[in-house]
Amino acid sequence: MDFMQISKKDFQKFVENLIQSKEEVVGVVKKGKHFAYDILEKSEQLCLDYTETILPPKKYFLPVEETLLKYKTGVASSYEATYGKSPKVIIGIHPGDMAAIALLDKSFSEGEKDSHYLNKRANSTLIGIYPTQSFPHRFSNSMIEKDAYKAADCFLVDLGNDYGIEVVTEKGKKIASAMKAVAGEKGLNEKIAQAKAKIKDEVSMPFSRRELSEFLHNKETHAEWKKRAEKCFSCGSCVLVCPTCYCFDVKDTVALSLQEGERKRMWDGCMLEKFANVAGNHNFRKLAGDRLKHRIFRKGKYIIDKFGMAGCVGCGRCSQACVANIASPVDIVQELKK
């Protein structure tokens, strides 16, 4: 990994030039009192000093709704695959979200390769940034280890007047040279390490991710699931804001002429009541407690066991989004520990 450096002013100039070059550039912007990823129209909109965005950046690779196939209604020979576009550059991804993209990369390329996701992913350069503000629900440090570096092309680290840059990939090298970043002075990597450690997580998982997987073993019948679920709305908010969730529903929609249509996939969530329904209205996860347990096991056990990567990246969005205030994985694990 190379360490480089750029002044904040020059970085903004680079972003402005990128926008002017007609490439689609996405970055973190203010949204009311919150933050969101959006297409940048001018560089001033970019806000890298943020707590957390409402939705994670996965929406650019696994859109909320995405057309997979087009067809003429009823004509099986007319099926045709369609591939959406993704931004050229995404700026400002926190390490947790970056680790989540690494997990999505793994899931969509393992076994049957999902070209709809992978095409978009290959098109984008990802510029991360280490958090400059604390977020009360974040516990990424205890979850993600080095996973963020499996997806990031480069990471920015706020050094006051400058950004330190960790250059991770060839794409990262290219973009660092495009922004005219300079090779780091002596001691830059120490300065970067110090700056990265400056913002501490306010909560933390009491286990490493491997320990968590082992801890959850045999916790399936714990009374906490049922008890906690008494307050659950099954509204799906916790999974819809989650950067590592990639479940989807598939639906056909046709034009008003009925002559042509599209097969689309859209985000879905295992916390919603009907998610595990099969024919005959039999539901394999009928109780909210079973669904809550499934979510935590998926985040804390199944994914790490299967892929060796974090199933929960500790971004804290679920805790923030849960109106009933029961979604926090840290709180749940603390209760299970008692």
Binding site: K31, I54, S234, L240, L272, K274, A324
Partner: peptide
Amino acid sequence: YPVCVECKLRENECLYDLGKTCLGP
């Protein structure tokens, strides 16, 4: 499914975070 689903998909600020109430859940 509840209104929260469609609200999240539109990336709205949750009204509860803005000090308001909502029957979305």
